[in-house]
Nucleic acid binder design. Structure first.
Lengths: 343, 343
DNA sequence: ACGAGGTGTGAGAGCGTTCTCACCACGCCC
DNA sequence: GGGCGTGGTGAGAACGCTCTCACACCTCGT
């Protein structure tokens, strides 16, 4: 039965102190378990806390400690479909696991469109959080700037677009894409296309750069018709693959810049009667769950996700701990080719 | 160039007041734009705010106003894949759009596993947020109870499992499923199966109940082999459909309890050489984006998502506004069958 | 000309914590 | 037996804001 009277007044430290027969200071000491408290006092306080169902008021505490024990994961993306990307879900999971036995809480802020971005920036600047992990993908995003300007510690997930001196953590996308493409070359393939990510994203560009670098190093520079731009979704991968197959009938391999897109590409290849990997070899990127379960299982480039989320948290906590005086570095994590059946 | 010295001290109301040549109280009035301020004072304050790049400290403000202007969307789900569900993304989008021109900020809290649930509950009880919208799907979830016990206003997205008196907003899942199944009956189908949702979720049960009710009303109660349990994912839909097709070779229609699952089911049907809708008619649920673009376009049950997110926000703000004294009701929103090619 | 009513302003008391001191009682060593 | 650390405690000042008052000033109506 829920009583629907006015909300009961939440008890304060003062009241706990009165009930326990000690001073406010002592209660505070018990709450923050400082060593210098006698066992009797401690017990009395615990009993009083229990009796009153006392919960400390975070606002009051934060006001004096200047910490909120909260860090924000900000997702700046007009396109809501990023939620659907398994990669994003894995980041969230990794971060909250990493913070699980910390004092820190993790909150997600989604900002689509200018108004929401400004709202998020305001939220951050007003001191709701101790630090921000920002996922910002598109070139024209203004949130990185807004947040970098604020005094709140900031770490970027993914290399920033311009050479802005903000610490970040990223996978070696160029290296991974190069390795994937080299692998295809090593298999003896010669007509190697790519389904790239969106080219207004650093990650899209980097993976394309790696692909090109590998081809150039082999003395077989990529021609434009071998490149089809996708959007990191399965449907986009299908579209791009269709385009590619139309333009390059003798295609014998393709590097697809994300696993969801690769799944879409596989579907198109199958529908077109091409066998994978016999006729067309396929390499994906991300080592998403689906890569192991699709047909055929996908050779792909794995990112060390735990290392990356760990890096994000470390870099951020380091800044927070140092009171903003530490110039945190950045971290680029190596990738690994995972061989399965598709190439 | 970012200076990496110690963080600059953030200016306070006091300093703004000094610079503007007025009192703290007047600055406060300007900040909260109260009417009773002379234009000169207002201008002076604005200039000072600008000059010092003053940003009010929310902790201090919240301490006295006892409001945080933040509401939390709590997602209690051990399975991270819910992020991938387009339905969830649409809820987030709807809510933040609804709150866009409010003072309220929206934060997402994800709780997988007991520890994180307790962390979230603590976060809420400590007064970080003014209210909570909770998405909790599974029967054994303890977060609804934890949060209902706290004095923070709460609204559930989706009917709660037991008859707990917590306000909620839900679609009429039973009605929608009944309508979908009736539609299949009206098409003259007689061997109508269903791919249900997980049966430890209210939404899964309700849609199964609706399906059964329609068949019972037609005098053709469902037999057990006509029901295959899915998990709301595309892959799960495929699996369930495969099972169904194996057990019931003469199946001529299927009600699939979510669109992603229906997409998976369509794929299996096609692979099995059944034409849709000629051999097997298919109806989905949710009217997800993919329903319109898949092949064939999916007949499905649409939920009034804007109405639902609006209801969530309204119910919550109502409670918040009344200081917890209002016993908010609940809201069940009607669904609509959207006819496309698949049935 | 004088009080009534409104309008702009500032002083100051909180809000619920933490944290620095100062204090008191010990037991200890020389 | 008188300083001297030392462990436990409480008084009280912050923290940065809001909000209630009281006060000064300015019209008006009479």
């Amino acid at each position: 039965m829920t009583t629907t009277g006015p909300r009961p007044p939440t008890p304060t430290l003062e009241q706990v102190a009165a009930l326990a027969g000690v001073s406010r200071a002592t209660v505070s000491r018990v709450i923050n378990d400082s060593p210098r408290v006698s066992p009797e006092a401690r017990d009395a306080v615990h009993a009083a806390v229990e009796a009153l169902r006392y919960v400390p008021n975070r606002m009051a505490r934060s006001l004096v400690t200047r910490r909120t024990d909260t860090i924000a994961l900000v997702l700046s993306e007009s396109n809501t479909q990023i939620f659907a990307d398994p990669f994003f879900a894995r980041i969230v999971r990794g971060l909250s696991a990493r913070l699980a036995d910390t004092e820190q809480n993790l909150v997600l802020l989604a900002a689509r469109g200018r108004r929401e971005q400004e709202k998020v920036a305001r939220y951050v600047r007003q001191g709701h959080v101790d630090g921000v992990i920002l996922i910002s993908l598109h070139r024209d995003d203004l949130l990185p700037d807004l947040l970098a300007r604020s005094p709140v510690p900031l770490v970027l997930s993914g290399r920033p677009f311009d050479g802005r001196p903000v610490p970040y953590v990223d996978a070696d996308n160029v290296g991974g894409a190069r390795a994937a493409t080299s692998h295809l070359l090593r298999l003896g393939r010669s007509r190697i296309g790519t389904v790239s990510g969106p080219l207004d994203m650093v990650v899209g560009l980097d993976r394309l750069t790696g692909y090109r670098a590998a081809l150039a190093a082999a003395g077989a520079p990529a021609s434009p018709e071998l490149v089809a731009e996708g959007d990191f979704t399965e449907a986009g991968g299908s579209r791009a693959m269709t385009r590619l197959l139309g333009d390059v009938p003798d295609l014998d391999a393709v590097f697809v810049a994300s696993d969801p897109m690769a799944v879409g590409a596989l579907r198109v290849l199958r529908a077109a009667g091409r066998r994978v990997p016999e006729d067309v070899a396929v390499v994906g990127f991300d080592d998403a769950e689906v890569a192991a379960t699709c047909d055929p299982p996908l050779t792909t480039v794995a990112q060390p996700l735990d290392e990356m989320t760990g890096g994000l948290v470390d870099l951020l906590l380091e800044q927070i701990g140092s009171g903003g005086s530490a110039a945190a570095g950045s971290r680029v994590c190596g990738t690994a080719l995972v061989r399965r059946a598709s190439a």
